Computed example of a mutant assay.
Amino acid sequence: MLLELKLFPKILVLGLLLGSCDKYEPVAPLEEELLDGPLGGLTSAQNAQFLAGDIAFNDDVFTSRSGLGPLFVATNCASCHAGDGKGTPFTTLTRFGQTDATGNQFLHLGGPQIQNRALPGYEPETVPNGATFSKFTPPAVTGLGFLQYVTDADIMAMSDPNDDDGDGISGVPNWGTLKEYLDPLDNAIAQDGKYIHRFGKKAAAYDLLQQTVDAYNQDIGIASSFDPKDVYSGLTIDPEVSDKTIRDVVAYLNTLKAPIPRNQEASQVQNGKSLFSRINCASCHRPELVTGYSPIEALSRKTFQPYTDLLLHDMGLGLDDGYTEGSALTSEWRTPPLWGLGLSPTTQGGQYFLLHDGRAHSIEEAILMHGGEAENSKNQYQSLTQSEKNDLIKFLESL
């Protein structure tokens, strides 16, 4: 009995301490505040492959022993896409060597991308004399599966190369030749042996397999069976990453959820949404698209809200870097999806780095740097009252 009485105060204090810890535990973020996470409705096998791809994308770090380098930009995928979000100036890539559709003229000098880091004993690359170049800030990677399964027919229907409707906007697809390891997607449309490409700043990548293979090769210096060329020597070497890992990462990117909009019922957001359409931003940043057939049921024939048309648009002299990819002009850029825009600072150090190279440090700065086909919308934005501008920005932040 005496022993029990001696222990009682200690047990009581311990219980009080444990109970009081609850209020100091971090509050779990809401689902709409996170960019990462899988699509709903996946099968158990799809969820398992998503997890395998998640590990390869976020946790696997390459070293010299596992094939890194000798030249590289990053050591794993998450280095550039932390939290599956946008990159920063520290992770921005440099592409060089192509000024028109005739192809890259500097592949023999390390093109199309600078590997700005090197293992000890090697020198990192620099832009060769005479080569034009552009900076590419890594984009967010969520919702990409939806974009992959928009049909070519729908993309072509949004295209208006001759501006037949007279609105000053004439978006076009980036038509390119398929890499030998690629197969056309279902519902693909070919023109003169070329297919619509849709991923990347210039829409130069056909699908998520090409995007993944290129990232391993050009960003990490890792050869695969799909692209066995070593970025340092230019020689064909044995694969340094397995086909399974490549496929797992593709599956991961395919089945990441779409960003979830927030505060949609707020009056400012509703008014901003109306203004967005009124000043014709929605002509390029299409609010709603539909997927065609996908072998992943959760992506098949689904309506979604990405705010893009997946087309190239001439953005004017201010955004002409003198560099291009595929058949795009140097001033043409694929319309970036706006979903998840308001969450960008969570992966960009608490601030914005927008446009293709991160040069805009706020949403308004990005709007004011629009030119070319977007000149009229920019001018209409400038004519809004300050209150209307605030509402439009609130709407964009809610995406």
Rank of each mutant, 00 (worst) to 15 (best):
M1P: 10
L2D: 13
L3W: 13
L5A: 14
F8P: 00
L12Y: 08
L14W: 02
G15Q: 03
L16Y: 00
L16G: 15
L18F: 13
L30I: 02
E31T: 10
L34D: 04
L34N: 09
L35W: 10
L35H: 11
G37W: 11
G37F: 08
G37V: 09
L39Q: 14
I55C: 01
I55G: 00
A56W: 07
D60R: 13
V61F: 01
F62Y: 15
S64Y: 01
L68R: 10
L68V: 07
V73P: 01
T75H: 11
C80V: 04
A82T: 11
A82I: 05
D84E: 08
G87S: 07
G87R: 06
T94E: 10
G97D: 04
Q98C: 06
T99S: 14
T102A: 12
F106M: 08
A118T: 03
A118Y: 05
G121L: 07
E125W: 00
V127D: 05
T132N: 15
F133E: 09
F136P: 00
T142A: 15
G143L: 03
L147N: 09
Q148Y: 04
Y149P: 04
A153G: 12
M158E: 12
P161V: 09
N162K: 12
D165G: 05
D167F: 08
G168M: 08
V172M: 12
N174M: 07
N174F: 07
L178S: 01
L185V: 00
A188G: 06
I189M: 08
D192A: 15
I196W: 09
R198L: 01
A203Y: 02
A203T: 03
L208F: 08
Q210P: 01
Q211T: 13
Q211N: 10
Q211S: 14
D214C: 01
A215L: 06
A223C: 14
D227M: 07
P228T: 00
V231T: 14
G234R: 09
L235T: 06
P239V: 02
E240M: 09
V241C: 03
D243E: 13
D243R: 05
D243C: 00
V250R: 03
V250E: 08
Y252S: 04
L253W: 01
T255W: 03
T255R: 05
K257Y: 04
A258F: 13
A258K: 02
P261T: 05
S267W: 09
N271P: 00
I279D: 04
S283V: 14
S283T: 14
R286K: 15
V290N: 14
Y293A: 09
L299P: 09
Y307Q: 06
T308C: 07
L311F: 10
L311G: 06
L317Y: 05
L319G: 03
D321C: 03
G322Q: 10
G322Y: 10
G326I: 05
E332R: 03
W333G: 00
T335K: 01
W339F: 13
G340A: 10
G342M: 09
G350T: 11
G350K: 13
F353R: 08
H356R: 11
R359G: 01
H361Y: 02
A366T: 06
G372I: 03
E373W: 02
A374M: 15
E375H: 06
S377L: 01
N379Q: 15
L384H: 11
L384P: 13
Q386C: 00
K389A: 08
N390W: 02
I393D: 04
E397Y: 02
E397H: 05
S398Q: 03
